[in-house]
């Protein structure tokens, strides 16, 4: 059991070389239409032989390659078992992208008021912004004040709008 097969090792290194060109289906050896249970079966049978823990007697080079391969296998498995991710992946794959590239998804604020925690504050903030746009500085100031009373902690979006408002007031004063 402890005798390594050098052909296996050579094979591992070969896979590692072309890893970045392999799509998830080829990597797992399943057809694009394969169901979750087939994907799972394929993943487990590969894991049984290719997991780094099963190859601790391999050379450092082979172990490093196995480690990289296994990370990609985990990625492939996760994507192919998740219908939503799979759909996005298939679309990308049709355009030649073999990995599901995580783009900056909607984690960050889409608009400045998204950064406000309180829903009321968001409402007042939006009102203040539109007031400012149409030049109703008094109303903008009032709404902004209301927004900041609802938002307990200091907020960058409110501060930014306040600065704009101050600028607009100065501008108006000059005129």
């Amino acid at each position: 059991m402890n005798r390594r097969n050098s052909q296996f090792d050579a094979y591992v290194l070969e896979i590692h070389k072309v890893l970045d060109q392999l799509d998830y289906y080829h990597l797992l050896g399943v057809q694009p239409g394969a169901g979750v249970s087939r994907v799972r079966e394929a993943f487990l049978s590969i894991a049984a032989k290719f997991h780094p823990d099963r190859n601790r007697d391999a050379s450092d080079e082979v172990r490093a390659a196995l480690y990289e391969i296994f990370k990609r296998l985990n990625e492939a498995y996760r994507v192919l078992c998740d219908p939503q991710k799979k759909a996005v992946y298939d679309q990308g794959l049709a355009e030649g992208r073999v990995r599901l590239e995580q783009t900056h998804r909607a984690a960050g604020p889409k608009s400045p008021e998204d950064a406000l925690k309180s829903p009321q504050a968001r409402q007042f903030y939006r009102q203040a912004a539109s007031d400012l746009k149409r030049g109703a500085l008094m109303q903008a100031e009032l709404n902004l004040k209301l927004a900041s009373t609802h938002e307990k902690s200091p907020n960058a979006a409110i501060e930014a709008l306040r600065a704009k408002l101050e600028d607009a007031k100065k501008q108006k004063g000059k005129n």
Binding site: N2, N5, R56, D57
Partner: peptide
């Protein structure tokens, strides 16, 4: 984890 490491060969063995 160690059973596979026990006889880690210094040179790769011949393919069996």
């Amino acid at each position: 984890l160690t059973r596979y490491q026990m006889s880690r060969p210094s040179a790769p063995p011949e393919p069996y």
